[in-house]
């Protein structure tokens, strides 16, 4: 089922799978990435498998994306974190959640665990960075570049010719978000956590593709985060969720099961 819920100043579009009887079943929340993404990325991939495995699954469209409201301003990381807290409140949810995020969604998940640790059982980042100062620099660069390239109208014809109509369509969606919101300026101005990652107290699973560059964080994460597991998939770029759905699903399912059993143990 999909539903629209009031979350702070906006209405959030969400989809839930599973029994939702609140009887001690694990709660898994999936957070998607920026611009060309929506809850559909999970709805048709990982979501059904987690529901079949006996978990309650919550997927939602981030502000500005999919069928959630698109306010003109308010796109700092802390706004996205507040939205997630408000969404769980709107559902009357008090279980600590296993929060899974892809790309920017992984940063939202990690920030949520840093600022609301009691609401989080575990965190999974798929091809993402924790919200530290260097991340804001990467986002500033990437967003400015994408905004400039998409602003050239001829780019759509070029994208269509070189990557196909589907990618051109997605680019149109991204362009619309840039044109109607302050997202490109807001994300790099986000609140961050200290570089020592001491704020990350919840167990962290971090998945990477070895060709994306983000896997370079592995030694740092392993050294700084107490309960951290990192997995690097070989011959894989940034699109881990889309291109390696089975491995991603199995790794996260095993991780959630493991931590659910650990919590249930006396």
């Amino acid at each position: 089922m999909t539903e629209r819920l009031r979350t702070g100043g906006i209405t959030t579009h969400a989809a839930r799978l599973g029994a939702w009887h609140g009887d001690g079943r694990p709660l898994v929340v999936f957070v998607h990435g920026l611009l060309t993404d929506s809850l559909a990325s999970y709805y048709f991939t990982l979501g059904p498998a987690f529901a079949t495995a006996g978990m309650d699954v919550l997927m939602y469209d981030l502000r500005g994306h999919g069928r959630t409201d698109r306010p003109a301003t308010g796109y700092r990381l802390e706004d996205f974190v507040d939205d997630l807290a408000a969404l769980l409140d709107a559902l009357g949810e008090t279980r600590p959640a296993h929060v899974v995020g892809n790309s920017f969604g992984g940063t939202v998940a990690t920030a949520f665990s840093a600022w609301h640790p009691a609401r989080v059982a575990t965190v999974t980042m798929i091809e993402a960075e924790p919200p530290v100062a260097v991340w804001t620099g990467h986002m500033a660069e990437g967003l400015a570049d994408a905004k400039t390239r998409l602003a050239r109208a001829e780019a759509f014809g070029w994208i269509s010719a070189n990557y196909g109509a589907h990618t051109a369509r997605l680019s149109t969606v991204a362009h619309r978000i840039f044109e109607s919101t302050t997202l490109a300026e807001d994300v790099p101005a986000s609140r961050v956590i200290a570089d020592d990652l001491g704020a990350l107290t919840r167990p962290l699973l971090a998945l990477f593709g070895d060709e994306s560059g983000l896997a370079e964080q592995v030694p740092d994460l392993a050294a700084k985060v107490a309960r951290c597991r990192t997995v690097v998939l070989p011959d894989q770029g940034h699109s881990v969720l889309v291109e390696r759905p089975q491995e991603t699903r199995d790794l996260i399912l095993a991780w959630v099961h493991e931590h659910t059993l650990a919590e249930a143990a006396p």
Partner: peptide
């Protein structure tokens, strides 16, 4: 339709 519209159709 975008993929998010397919989610709504699914509902």
């Amino acid at each position: 339709l975008e993929s998010i519209d397919l989610v709504v159709l699914s509902g």
